[in-house]
Amino acid sequence: MSTDTLVTLAGCTALACAPDGPKICGGDDATDVIGAALGHGVELVVLPVRRLAVEFFTLRTGVAGEVVQKFVNYRLRLAVVGDISGHVTRSTALRDFVVEADRGRQLRFVDTLAELEERLRVEALRQDAGGR
């Protein structure tokens, strides 16, 4: 099993979770990841999509809401990295959730780390320009 690592993306230090770590099946599992992130003093957690239990992508289970709320409570941002197109294709609710999440700063869904880094770079430029 590989280990979580610290990475810097567009000037932001993040905890990049190992792809083969334990599944995130609910709030308690999220709390374990959050504890690690807080221990490293980061503001962003990068979570590979394969770490999320399939129930996360079925919104009626409440798993996504529970996990995301944990991150909000601890003021940590979450980026889910990987291909979720199959899940989004099967669920209009999930598609809407992803679109709405990507409008904010708390939760991001991206295909690659490079895409995440670009979004963070653009976001930082907007903040430096006064939020425009």
Rank of each mutant, 00 (worst) to 15 (best):
M1Q: 13
S2E: 08
T3S: 03
T5Y: 05
L6K: 02
L6Q: 03
T8G: 15
T8W: 08
A10F: 05
A10K: 12
G11E: 11
G11P: 13
G11M: 11
G21V: 00
G21L: 01
G21Q: 00
I24Q: 05
C25M: 14
G26K: 14
D28W: 09
D28G: 15
D28N: 08
A30M: 06
V33H: 02
I34P: 01
I34G: 01
G35T: 03
A36M: 00
L38Y: 04
H40W: 01
G41R: 00
E43L: 11
E43A: 15
V45P: 06
V45E: 08
V45Y: 08
V45G: 08
V46W: 08
L47T: 03
R50L: 07
R51T: 03
R51L: 09
R51F: 07
R51E: 04
A53S: 13
E55V: 02
T58W: 04
L59T: 11
A64R: 00
G65C: 14
G65K: 13
E66T: 12
V68Q: 15
F71L: 07
Y74V: 01
R75I: 06
R75Q: 10
A79S: 02
G82R: 00
D83E: 10
D83S: 06
D83P: 01
D83H: 06
I84C: 09
H87V: 02
H87I: 01
H87S: 13
T89C: 04
R90Q: 13
S91E: 10
S91N: 09
T92G: 15
T92L: 14
A93M: 15
A93E: 14
L94S: 03
L94R: 03
R95Y: 02
V98G: 09
V99S: 02
E100H: 14
D102T: 07
D102W: 01
R103E: 15
G104M: 07
R105D: 14
F109I: 02
V110T: 11
D111I: 13
L113Q: 14
A114E: 10
L116K: 01
R119L: 03
R119F: 00
R119P: 01
V122P: 03
A124P: 07
L125W: 12
L125F: 06
R126E: 07
R126F: 06
D128M: 15
D128N: 12
A129H: 07
G130V: 13
G131F: 03
